[in-house]
Design a protein around this nucleic acid. Structure first.
Lengths: 111, 111
DNA sequence: TTCATATATATGATATTTCATATGTGTTTA
DNA sequence: TAAACACATATGAAATATCATATATATGAA
């Protein structure tokens, strides 16, 4: 059972909120996608991802060298609704980040 | 324009989240209703109310000696949705507080 | 004067960042 | 094929920043 306070603490920090809204939009992203989109150091991004994992908002899946993050399948519907509602109604907060994924050189050798 | 990060910072603290969910359920409440429901000191409740007012989530209305708080009419629809969705799907988080309002002696002389 | 509410200031508690380093996977090469 | 290497990601620990609480006191209405 996800406590609403735990959930909202996760959304109350700029990096974590952006990670969640990016994943709400794209379905899944790997760590290097996120460091590129957010222009932040890898340890900083990984640390916040660990927090989101620990609290049950995200789950991870390794594919070779890369680790992809997506919403935890156990996340309750109301929480998914909140995240998707927020992403849809605050595009100015994430659009420039999304465009980094498409137009900028991704640090992943993969891309 | 309400920034989503500002909004979620307001929801990331136990007292503030409970205040917002109580108001989502009841429409409006005065400070003494909230101190009763939450069993917290008046300065603590007032301080959090001031924060929610400053950030644009709540507006206040004085009625005689009492000050009533309700959602700010300028609060965007997505934010109202988030709060009502959360209240509806987390009744275990607020039901016991709501029952204090109905059954316990309210500290307001009014009641 | 009393009751309801607001706020200042000091203090304590938590969360975040950074740097260094560890782990884990795939790839090269001797 | 095993050692060495390169790349992606995770984490420990210290330094720093941010936030919440308590107590005392101020304001404002009846």
């Amino acid at each position: 059972m996800l406590c609403p306070l735990t959930f909202y603490k996760c959304l109350s920090e700029d990096t974590r909120l952006k990670i969640l809204l990016l994943i709400a939009t794209r379905g899944e992203l790997c760590v290097c996608d996120l460091t590129t989109a957010l222009q932040l150091s890898q340890p900083k991004v990984s640390r916040h991802l660990a927090e989101l994992r620990k609290c049950g908002l995200l789950s991870d899946q390794r594919k070779g060298k890369w680790v992809y993050y997506q919403f935890n399948p156990d996340l309750p519907d109301w929480a998914v609704d909140v995240l998707q509602n927020t992403a849809k109604n605050n595009s100015q907060y994430i659009d420039s980040l999304l465009s980094m994924l498409d137009t900028q050189q991704d640090t992943c050798t993969r891309s």
